[in-house]
Write a protein that binds this DNA or RNA. Structure first.
Length: 820
DNA sequence: TACGGGCGGGG
DNA sequence: GTGTACGCCCGTA
């Protein structure tokens, strides 16, 4: 019989000497099935000068002691493969089981024969060999096998084929735990789990909400379920997951916290968390190694949504912290509930009647986690389809491994063999190496009129594709057409033939261009969402390609290629600048892929003509784009020097909004006052209201002196990064933290300390005060003048030729008077 | 300035 | 699991 199914989790087992792949899958009726298929592991060997007859003889008798049985070669064949552009014959060697592969390869390598693809995870091997896309529709021919091995029906497949690239809807369950904790300490050995929250949607799209806890208290909410003790709680958790029966279980830092904690507590109470659909136990790190580890339940796909956000998606976010609170507020517009978690333990012990808000908080976290997972699942599945690997692995990969996985998937179509990963020595060597980066044109400090900004679209990817840059073509002889690299006489790339690596990148760029066209065409919102997710995934991969070439752990590492890419980039940006100057534009600034010209006597139309001329000469896919026209722009100097600072400027758009880059106004340890002043001064100056800017600052300083600035704008924030006893240098924030400890608070590393500087004599740290203790008019104006306002704006004013004392003249004296 | 150690997320 | 993160920040030599 035939079935179609959507595989979401993968495993393999050895049965009677056979290697069986288990595909845990969803069926169209919403139930689950496990499709089982046999697959044989293999790797490759490059004989070079080794005698073939002797090699075959040795292979046939090879048997190395191991568990569960001796590692042996099942069969072998000679096939042609391409390695770094070199087509040659390799031995494809089949092993009796996956773990035999590294054992056999190590032995063969000791004979002086290089082996390849010996460290590819077996499930990855399987998915690539079969060209299957996880989470999408696959068709199997075979039959159900009555069997109690699994909690779901088992289907033995005789053949499988990819039926469509479409996915289905998935049943997600979010989980979050709260634990007993005094002084923010986490101790899974001694502190119990107090409550566990679940959030999901049932088949009717109705909310499923549950908080299980083990303290008797009068609970109003229906979703609260009270059990006898922690052991019963663990059993109830198990039952809840089994009854809800999700394909996906999600948590926030659940690889490192929730599941290891559950595991540790289950161990403590001798409870078996046999949640796996093959009756296996939850796999999670214990014994204090919360950092390491991935939590896994066989047959349920565990998504630690933090991992995907931290490694892949977070680069889109503005937040500098990946806490659930920050991420949820940026992505969902929801924040966490405000409860004083520090008091949970005390409430638990002494005031259980106040537990309900904690249950609500717990549930809310689970709901946020669910929403994050639901929102990002689309993007994640697109990544899975593109790189062709299990979702479980994809969300736990960084860019480099994601790119590499994509390349390895494409390698299957191009009959290309993957080079080996570097060994430790090689990694050490590579980490020593570095390359020159992009070109930055040193700006002259000043206020400029009529700027046009150009930048190269996807500069590094288009350079790689347009110049056929890759390890295969690098100085490849024999060659008729050599493209040499600017600044590097000894480097060139052969252009006679397209090679694998730039070809893969080209496909990636073209694929994305196609999708962009489709997005414009489609009217369906759902289709648009899908295409945008795919486009995003392809963009991430294309942009990571250059970084991958220079990544020390890469299989296709080539520092020469990475260095050539930046060399070409420097060449093109410099040439664009030069041509612009020849045309009569005045160059103001340039950085890596962008250049800023002043129009002077020219107009925007002439700038656009210049763009056309440049583009006519650019090779291949390279393209310069018009970023925009800016009526004003300001570039400041490096502190205490004449030179213009790089990567620090502000532009005014025609609609009077600003594009501010590199100004420190965004940093945490600046007061809101300093940030506001900087922003406003930039704005006024860009609007040609120089005098107003001076008046603004003077007025503000006057207000400051008269104590009129609201306290919240004067609050300084610094993070405590370690235990207070560990600080030698007593900075203001450390002193404040110690004061708060005196008052009975517990300040742990990570706490952000807020303080205000007040009037008085002595060291700065002696004048720091907790904001709530500061009385009206008590703050120290001269501190805020000298350490906040002046540093924030002096470089901006000096561009206009003002000296510090011209702006602050009538004010500094009073300020100085205070000091002496 | 180089190097080593620790942290992130979570309660 | 065909295994052993990684990049940043801080403090010290």
């Amino acid at each position: 019989m035939k079935i179609t199914f959507y595989p979401y989790d993968f495993d393999y087992k050895l049965k009677n000497g056979k290697v069986l792949v288990y595909l845990y899958s969803k069926l169209n009726d919403g139930t689950k099935v496990c499709v089982v298929e046999q697959h044989q592991p293999f790797f490759f060997a490059d004989l070079k000068n080794f005698d073939k007859t002797e090699f075959i003889q040795r292979l046939q008798t090879l048997s190395l002691a191991s568990q569960p049985e001796p590692a042996k070669v099942i069969s072998f064949e000679e096939i042609e493969k391409e390695l770094i552009g070199e087509k040659k014959r390799f031995f494809k060697i089949y092993a009796n089981y996956p773990k035999a592969v590294p054992i056999l390869a190590k032995e063969i390598q000791s004979w002086g024969i290089e082996c390849y693809e010996k460290d590819v995870l077996f499930i990855h091997r399987y998915l690539r060999d079969k060209f299957f896309l996880p989470m999408t529709e696959i068709e199997a021919e075979g039959q159900y096998l009555p069997d109690s091995e699994l909690c779901v029906p088992k289907f033995i497949a005789s053949s499988l084929r990819q039926k469509s690239p479409h996915t289905t809807s998935w049943k997600i369950l979010a989980i979050d735990i709260e634990t007993y904790s005094l002084h923010k300490e986490i101790d899974f050995k001694n502190n119990p789990i107090l409550m566990v929250a679940f959030y999901g949607l049932n088949e009717q799209n109705e909310e499923v909400r549950k908080v299980i806890t083990w303290k008797k208290f009068p609970a109003n909410e229906k979703y609260i379920e009270i059990v006898e003790n922690e052991k019963e709680l663990l059993l109830a958790v198990k039952k809840t997951i089994q009854e809800y029966s999700p394909e996906i279980i999600t948590g926030y830092f659940s690889d490192g916290f929730d599941f290891p904690y559950l595991k540790a507590r289950a161990h403590h109470h001798k409870v078996t968390l046999d949640l796996g659909l093959d009756h296996s136990e939850l796999i999670a790190g214990t014994q204090g190694d919360f950092r390491e580890g991935e939590a896994k339940i066989k047959g349920i796909l565990h998504i630690d949504i933090l991992k995907f956000i931290k490694y892949i998606f977070g680069k889109n976010l503005k937040t500098d912290s990946y806490s659930l609170d920050n991420v949820a507020s940026e992505l969902l517009g929801h924040q966490k509930h405000i409860v004083d978690l520090d008091s949970l333990a005390a409430v638990w012990d002494r005031k259980p009647e106040l537990l309900e808000p904690f249950c609500a908080y717990n549930l809310h976290d689970a709901r946020l986690t669910y929403k994050l997972c639901d929102k990002l699942l689309f993007d994640i599945i697109e990544f899975c389809k593109i790189v062709g690997l299990p979702l479980f692995d994809v969300i736990r990969m960084r860019f480099s491994r994601l790119v590499e996985s994509y390349i390895m998937k494409r390698a299957m179509d191009h009959n290309v063999l993957a080079p080996n990963k570097p060994g430790d020595d090689e990694v050490d060597r590579r980490m020593e190496e570095s390359i020159q980066g992009g070109f930055v044109y040193q700006p002259t400090p000043g206020l400029y009129k009529d700027l046009v900004v150009f930048d190269f679209r996807s500069l590094y990817p288009t350079i790689i594709v347009s110049h056929n840059i890759g390890p295969e073509s690098f100085r490849r002889e024999p060659c008729l057409q050599k493209k040499s690299v600017p600044e590097k006489e000894e480097y060139w790339f052969c252009q006679d033939q397209r090679y694998f690596l730039p070809l893969v990148l080209e496909e990636l760029i073209n694929r994305r261009a196609e999708i962009k066209k489709e997005i414009k065409k489609t009217a369906s919102e759902q289709e648009k969402k899908l295409l945008e997710a795919r486009s995003y995934a392809l963009k991430i991969l294309a942009n990571s390609f250059y970084g991958y070439l220079g990544f020390f752990g890469a299989r296709w590492y080539s520092l020469e290629c990475a260095a050539s890419t930046t060399a070409f980039a420097r060449y093109y940006i410099k040439r664009t600048i030069q041509k612009g100057e020849e045309k009569g534009f005045k160059v103001v600034y340039g950085d890596t892929d962008s250049c800023f010209f002043q129009l002077e006597s020219k107009n925007v139309e002439e700038a656009l003509n210049f763009l056309k001329e440049i583009n006519a000469e650019l090779p291949g896919q390279m393209e310069l784009e018009f970023e925009g026209y800016f009526p004003r722009g300001i570039f400041v100097s490096i502190k205490g020097r004449e030179q213009g600072a790089k990567k620090k400027y502000a532009l005014l758009r025609e609609n009077s909004t600003m594009k501010v880059t590199g100004f420190e106004a965004v940093r945490r340890n600046w007061s809101l006052l300093a940030k506001e002043v900087q922003q406003e001064v930039l704005r006024l100056i860009l609007l040609d209201k120089k005098e107003d800017a001076v008046i603004y600052v003077r007025t503000l300083v006057k207000d400051l002196k008269q104590g009129k600035i609201p306290l919240f704008k004067l609050v300084l924030k610094t993070q405590i990064t370690r235990e207070l006893s560990q600080y030698n240098a007593v900075n203001p924030h450390v002193l404040i933290a110690r004061q708060r400890v005196q008052k009975g608070e517990r300040i742990a590393p990570g706490t952000i300390i807020e303080y205000v500087l007040v009037k008085g004599s002595g060291l700065i740290r002696e004048r720091a005060k907790i904001p709530s203790d500061v009385k009206e008019g008590e703050y120290d104006p001269s501190y805020y003048l000298y350490h906040q306002i002046i540093p924030a704006v002096s470089s901006i004013f000096s561009v206009l030729g003002y000296k510090e004392d011209e702006i602050f003249s009538d004010t500094t004296q009073i300020g100085l008077g205070k000091f002496f």
